[in-house]
């Protein structure tokens, strides 16, 4: 069953087209990775799916209905975004208590465990939290709310590697016990590649990939060898990336179902992260350029 359905969704902010005919369906009880560069449109997709922003055109269905002002649908959603605003006059415990009041599946015991795990000071004012602690508040609300559909939009800002691993471990363990639909938007693709079961790659407001993670992992391969051998091997295939060093060529190609044994060529698997990077770079001449790290362009 599909929890989310978007068909031909376009979103314009004045002259800027944030989403350009986005269509996708996300299945129930899976962990979906929503990947893409800064400003690609990830946050806009999630804002529209949670009724916080409005699509310019196209069809949006969450649990079979449009989410805007739909208490029935929204009551089953938790959306944790990196830029989530908390009232300045709240302490950590007030934010957690508010979440407890609003989420029917809230597990106070689990929340208390997570507070311990992350070493979060519940009596501290929200304004006095470090960036990492603020992210931890969102992560705890996202996990303990146990909403049937949970969005995490880059929830890890400021969290160190150990805390991020803690988040992934807790998410996976709780997901195994209580299956639900999770949409995780992230830049740290390598870190979550074992976690996500389905990948949606979005770039410049368009969907580039929409496939099972397992399929994607076997989809491309990097081949290295003398220029002439590699060139003859990749001829007729989609080359995602090529690097030449002297007489050696290293090419990433898609559409190689099994590893052929070809003399003088070396084959390596391509990580999800590399595949995403190369696919995105293929999508446009500007994609080799860095974009300021941080946030999407539509906050």
């Amino acid at each position: 069953m599909n929890v989310i359905r978007m068909s031909g969704v376009t979103k314009r902010y004045g002259q800027v087209t944030a989403l350009d005919g986005v269509s996708m369906e996300l299945a129930e009880n899976r962990i979906h990775g929503l990947l893409g560069r800064n400003g690609a449109g990830k946050t806009t997709v999630m804002q529209i799916l949670t009724g916080q922003a409005f699509e310019t055109s196209g069809g949006v269905e969450v649990f079979g209905e449009h989410p805007y002002e739909n208490a029935d649908v929204l009551g089953r959603i938790c959306f944790i975004k990196e830029s989530q605003r908390y009232p300045d006059f709240f302490k950590v415990k007030h934010a957690l208590r508010a979440a407890e009041l609003l989420y029917p599946n809230w597990d106070a015991g689990f929340a208390a465990e997570l507070v311990d795990d992350f070493g979060l000071p519940v009596n501290r004012g929200i304004k006095k939290l470090s960036r990492g602690m603020l992210s931890a508040v969102g992560v705890i609300i996202g996990l303990a709310s146990r909403a049937p559909l949970t969005f995490f939009d880059e929830p890890y800002l400021g969290l160190d590697a150990v805390a991020r691993q803690l988040f992934y471990d807790r998410l996976l363990a709780d997901y195994a016990d209580r299956p639900r639909t999770v949409v995780l938007s992230t830049h740290l693709i390598d870190e979550v590649s074992d976690l996500i079961e389905h990948v949606v790659l979005i770039d410049k407001g368009r969907i580039l990939l929409d496939e099972d993670a397992d399929t994607l992992r076997t989809r491309a391969v990097t081949v290295t060898g003398p220029v002439t051998s590699v060139e003859s091997f990749v001829a007729g295939r989609t080359v995602l990336h090529r690097e030449q060093l002297g007489g050696f060529l290293r090419a990433t190609v898609s559409g190689v179902p099994d590893r052929p044994v070809v003399g003088g060529l070396e084959f390596e698997p391509v990580s999800l992260q590399q595949l995403v990077v190369r696919t995105t770079q293929m999508n446009g001449p500007h994609n080799g350029r860095p974009v300021g790290a941080g946030n999407g362009g539509n906050r």
Binding site: E69, N70, L74, G75, F79, Q84, Y86, F89, L102, Y103
Partner: peptide, 20 residues
């Protein structure tokens, strides 16, 4: 004034409808 500028974004983040 602060109820709207601060609590409104928080409440909508926790899946409250604008009407509620």
């Amino acid at each position: 004034l602060q109820t709207i500028t601060q609590v409104f974004p928080f409440a909508l983040g926790l899946s409250v409808t604008r009407w509620a």
